[in-house]
Simulated scan of single mutants.
Amino acid sequence: MRFDIITLFPELFTPFVEVGVTRRAYSSGQVAVQCWNPRDYAPGNYRRVDDRPFGGGPGMVMMAQPLADCLAAIRAQRAEAEPAPLVLFSPIGERIDHAQVQGWSDSQGAILLCGRYEGVDQRFIDRHVDVQLSLGDFVLSGGEIAAMALLDAVARLQPGVLNDEGSHQFDSFNPALDGLLDCPHYTRPEVWEGEPVPAALLSGHHANIERWRREQSLRNTALHRPELLDQARSRQQLSRKDEQVLASADLVNLAKPL
């Protein structure tokens, strides 16, 4: 798959694709990434890509024409057989979740537009943008971090990227499993600052370990993201035993406000 990134700061992506476990996806070509700077398509000595908003107000707005010319160059380079929706990271966009990431990981890629300043000229959005996405209800200084988040989530789902091929199957929010939060994890030493690893994890009894992990996953979800339980129920992914765990007095007593 291929992701073309429209950004005023392509240098931000250089270390991103060269470090960490997900670099395997980029170095192997499983996920191809190419950055495009709209300044390269802006006229004049100053290569201006922004201007003041009509109607007044603070900040600047990214101009439509340099973005349109940059987009045309990208589409000309991509093969016609590679459909590439244009994605804008925006506060009005649909929030990215695991199901969306899975969908993008199975796609041929996209063109990611990283906005800056006060935003992008609405006429460009109306004419060219196919999808708008958001990381959440907060504002970043630009779309680059959101683009990196999507790329990282997609890259780690590619075959051979993670050391353990099945690792991502147990990620939090995976609806193919149940969509719940993951259980806590522990490693050596067995006792750290007086606190031991839970006995179930040291038992060597696989059934007990799996039971403990399931109960902890249910507990985490009930305490921190209870709406995920409702979604799992709607998909009929909770068993009678799960409901018994959720109804236990122990779990109720642990439900304290954050």
Rank of each mutant, 00 (worst) to 15 (best):
R2Q: 14
L8P: 14
E11F: 10
L12G: 04
F13A: 09
F13Q: 09
P15W: 11
V17P: 00
E18A: 15
G20D: 05
R23Y: 02
S27H: 14
G29R: 10
Q30D: 12
A32P: 00
N37C: 13
P38E: 04
R39K: 14
D40E: 14
G44T: 08
D50C: 10
G56Y: 11
P58E: 11
G59H: 06
M63F: 03
A68V: 00
A72E: 15
R75E: 15
A76D: 13
R78V: 10
R78H: 11
E80C: 07
E80Y: 00
P83L: 07
V87R: 06
L88I: 05
F89L: 12
S90Y: 02
P91Q: 05
I92E: 12
E94I: 05
E94P: 00
H98M: 07
A99L: 06
V101E: 02
S107H: 01
G109D: 03
A110D: 03
I111S: 05
G115F: 03
G115M: 04
E118C: 06
G119F: 06
V120P: 07
V120E: 07
V120S: 11
D121M: 12
R123D: 09
D126H: 13
R127T: 15
H128I: 00
V129E: 08
D130F: 01
Q132K: 14
L135F: 05
V139R: 02
V139T: 11
S141A: 13
G142Q: 00
G142L: 01
G143L: 03
G143S: 04
A146E: 07
A147P: 07
A147F: 12
M148E: 13
A149P: 02
L151N: 11
D152I: 05
D152E: 15
A153C: 04
Q158M: 14
P159G: 07
D164L: 01
E165S: 14
G166H: 14
Q169A: 13
F170I: 00
D171T: 10
F173P: 03
N174K: 09
D178Y: 03
L180Y: 05
P184I: 02
P184V: 02
T187H: 06
R188V: 11
R188W: 06
P189A: 04
W192G: 09
E193C: 06
P198K: 04
P198Q: 08
A199H: 09
L201R: 07
S203T: 11
H205A: 14
H206V: 06
H206Q: 14
N208D: 13
R219L: 14
N220I: 02
T221I: 12
L223P: 05
L223E: 05
H224C: 05
E227M: 03
E227I: 03
E227K: 03
A232S: 12
R233Q: 13
Q236V: 04
Q237S: 11
S239D: 04
S239L: 05
R240I: 12
D242L: 11
Q244S: 09
L246Q: 07
S248L: 08
S248K: 12
S248G: 11
D250N: 08
D250Y: 02
L254G: 08
